[in-house]
Design a protein around this nucleic acid. Structure first.
Lengths: 138, 138
DNA sequence: CTTTGTGCAAATTCTTTGCACCAAA
DNA sequence: TTTGGTGCAAAGAATTTGCACAAAG
């Protein structure tokens, strides 16, 4: 556990984010729960151990992380923003049944190549698929 | 103008959507303004010619269109849903400066191939890029 | 001390819902 | 006359903002 906190702290430092109890907790959660959580999921998970925690702080923290490039904000789920600490090139799949977001890593890497098109300067790409996962297929 | 209305009507019929003044107006707008408009943009544009029009009807109409497969709902813009009447395979680009969503058609068509991965049944793909357009580059 | 972070409450924004009225077949 | 469509007002849900207090250096 202490080890994880150190790992989370180092991750923050890597992105020049000043550590705090709350920031470390959020980063630690993201590093150990790569489920592309929503703000609510993070809040519900961390609340018991940090009873004074507020959602505002989670929003502040995640916005800061995103600004600093430490997390990627996914728009695959229209209802809530989802946060991914894995910023490497990979696609996502959201299941219409359970709403879970899965990583798709076994994908033709060519599709992550940022195109070069006159008149556009590209920052980032998001590749999302919708469908049904095996759990929900019955 | 009458010609456009006929075109919009035929489009509705193609997707088994019963026409109404409002539905025709929304479809006509989508067909002639391929800017991936938000509900608000549609509302503001159509209000003058249909003064009794309500946003609820636009929501109802677009949800119906999406269910019937007549439009695609884009999640590229975290703030609002955007609607695209062009349901062919193409990617989108959103400019951080002006917020406009552009079609990217000159893209390697391979990236639109739906992958085959055990445990997932794919319905649709959305490929989105973020960056800055030439207008906003200064 | 001074700066920065946290968290409550309120405000904002987008979207959906309940329900009464209207329109078309 | 019956079914479905429209639109107002209200509710709901996600996120942001303003501000006072707490923490850290």
């Amino acid at each position: 556990m202490t080890k994880n906190i150190v790992q989370a702290q180092q991750h923050l430092l890597k992105y020049s984010i000043k550590p705090s109890v709350q920031r470390i907790a959020v980063m630690n959660f993201l590093l150990n729960n790569k489920i592309h959580p929503t703000v609510d999921e993070i809040y519900i998970s961390l609340s018991p151990s940090i009873p004074t925690l507020s959602k505002t702080t989670i929003y502040n923290t995640l916005n800061l992380f995103a600004e600093k490039g430490a997390v990627r904000v996914l728009s695959i789920d229209e209802k809530n923003a989802r946060y991914d600490v894995d910023i490497s090139a990979h696609a996502h799949f959201i299941c219409k049944g359970c709403g879970k977001v899965h990583d798709l890593t076994d994908i033709n890497p060519d599709i992550f190549k940022i195109p070069e098109i006159k008149g556009f300067s590209f920052d980032s790409a998001e590749i999302s698929y919708r469908g049904t996962c095996s759990n929900c297929m019955n």
